[in-house]
Design a protein around this nucleic acid. Structure first.
Lengths: 235, 235
DNA sequence: TCATCGTATATGTATATACATATGTTCAAG
DNA sequence: CTTGAACATATGTATATACATATACGATGA
C-alpha cells in the first residue's frame, strides 16, 4: 500500500465516487473539512483534490466547492456511443422501436456473473435514423445493479441513453468484429442476406460489478466507429 | 492563455516532447535547473513535473532525474495494435509478406496534408498468423516525418512494428467499419467473395504533424478488436 | 575482479503562510 | 421586481522550509 497521505485521501474519495455513494453532482467535502477530518494542511488535501480534478473525476468551482463530475459524453477516449444523440447531432431524425422485452433468470456462466444473484432484463430493439434502420440492439441489464430499469418504458426511448444518465459506469469493454447478416438480421436492417455488418459487443461495469451487456449490429456502410486517443496515459 | 507558472513550465516541456526535440529516454532538466531557469521555488517545478508524470509523458526516478517516457505498448486505452506481437503472444507463428512498395508524390487533399511537402512511401502487404492470412495492409508513410523509413527493408518485417518503435506517436484515430470482400481482397485473404471483413482505418500523428495512414482488412471471424477503457479522463 | 557498503543527490511528501481570483450571497438602490 | 455593488468564502497559485526515501556511483575490502 502506498501510504502517502494525499494519495490516501484521493483513493478514499475515489472509492465513494466509484461505489456510487457519491453520485454525479454530489458535493465533496470542502478542503477545510477534509483538513479537519485528516488533521493535515490544506496543501495536502488540495493536492488530492487537484489530481482528482485533473483525472476528470471531480470538477472544482471557486466559492462553490468540488463536485463529482458527470460522465463526459464526448471525451477524447473511445466512449460509449449514445446513438440517439449522435444521430440527432448529425441533423437526422432518430427513433427507437422496441421489438421485445422480457424479465428472465440468468442462464449460462457469463449471464450468471452479470445477474449477480438477481434477474436479467432482456431487450431487443431497432435504432432508426432518418427513417432507415441504423442498428439492431440486443441488451441484457442486471436488475440487481439497476432495479429501476424494470419500471422504465423503453418502447420509444433507447435503454442505452437511459442507462448512461442513471447508472454511472466506470469501465467498459468493446469487442468489435464483422459478421455477415443472417436472414433475421437482414430483414430487420433491410439489407441483403450475407451483407457485411459491424458487430459491437459492449460490456459495462460500475467498479467491480457488471451492469449491462449489449450487442449492436450495424449495416457495414451505415456506420463508422471512430476512436480518437492519445498515447500518454497515467495508471 | 493561462499564465500560471507551473502550467507554463509544463507546456514548455510538453512542447519539447511533442515536437520530438526531446525523444523518449531523454533526460528532462533537474528540478534545481528548472528553478534557476524560471526563477521560482522547487515546489512549483515539482508540480509541473508531477502532473507530467501523472499523465504518463515523463517518468521520474529518484537520484537519477526525469525522463521522457517511452510510448506504452499496453495501456488501458485502446492502443495501436502491433499485429506481430499480438499473434506471437497468442502462441502462433507470425509472418509478413510484402506485396508492393513504392515511393510516390502525394495526390489528393488528404495525402498532401500527410506528405507535408515531402514524398510518400506506399506499402501493401499481408499479415499471416499460423500460415493463414490474417490481414491485408495498405499503408502510406510521410517521408517528411520519417525519412529513415525509405531505407528500411519491409519485405519480412511489418512497417507497423518498426514505426511504433522508431517514430513516437502522440495521437491516433481509428475508424472502424465492416465491408464485403471484393475479388482481390477475397483472393488474398482466402475467403469467399463478399464475406464480411473488418476494416480499420488508422491515422497517426506526432504533435500536429501527420505520420502515417493505414487501412487494414481482417476476415470477419479471424479478428476481434478489443478496447477496454475507463470513464474518467483529464483534458 | 567482484561484491558490499556509504554517501551524495534528486525526487517525494508535508507544513505554514500569503496573496490572488472567481463566484455565490446579501442587501441596498433604482 | 430588477439591477448591481459589496462582501464572504472556497479554490488557485506560489513560497520557504523540513525531513523522508530511493538509488546511482564511487570507495572499500575480500
Amino acid at each position: 500500500m502506498n501510504a502517502s497521505l494525499h494519495l490516501r485521501i484521493r483513493t478514499d474519495i475515489e472509492a465513494q465516487i466509484l461505489s456510487g455513494a457519491w453520485p454525479p453532482g454530489h458535493r465533496v467535502p470542502f478542503e477545510h473539512e477534509l483538513m479537519a477530518t485528516y488533521g493535515c494542511a490544506r496543501m495536502t488535501v488540495n493536492r488530492a483534490l487537484s489530481t482528482l480534478a485533473q483525472d476528470g473525476l471531480i470538477e472544482r468551482r471557486r466559492r462553490a466547492g468540488s463536485f463529482v463530475a458527470r460522465p463526459k459524453v464526448h471525451s477524447a477516449v473511445l466512449d460509449i456511443p449514445d446513438l440517439r444523440s449522435e444521430v440527432t447531432r448529425r441533423g437526422q431524425a432518430y427513433a427507437f422501436r422496441l421489438i421485445s422485452t422480457r424479465r428472465r433468470p440468468a442462464s449460462g456462466l457469463a449471464e450468471v456473473e452479470l445477474a449477480d444473484g438477481g434477474a436479467l432484463l432482456e431487450l431487443r430493439g431497432l435504432h432508426l435514423a432518418a427513417g432507415r434502420p441504423l442498428a439492431i440492439e440486443h441488451r441484457l441489464i442486471s436488475l440487481a445493479v439497476a432495479p429501476q430499469a424494470a419500471e422504465i418504458d423503453f418502447s420509444e426511448d433507447p435503454p442505452g441513453a437511459w442507462l448512461l444518465e442513471h447508472v454511472p459506469w466506470t469501465e467498459a469493454e468493446h469487442r468489435i468484429s464483422a459478421v455477415g447478416a443472417d436472414a433475421a438480421t437482414a430483414k430487420l436492417l433491410e439489407i441483403p442476406r450475407g451483407a457485411a455488418c459491424l458487430a459491437v459487443d459492449r460490456r459495462t461495469w460500475r467498479g467491480a460489478t457488471h451492469v449491462t451487456k449489449v450487442r449492436q449490429l450495424f449495416p457495414g456502410e451505415a456506420y463508422d466507429l471512430v476512436a480518437r486517443f492519445g498515447a500518454s496515459r497515467g495508471g
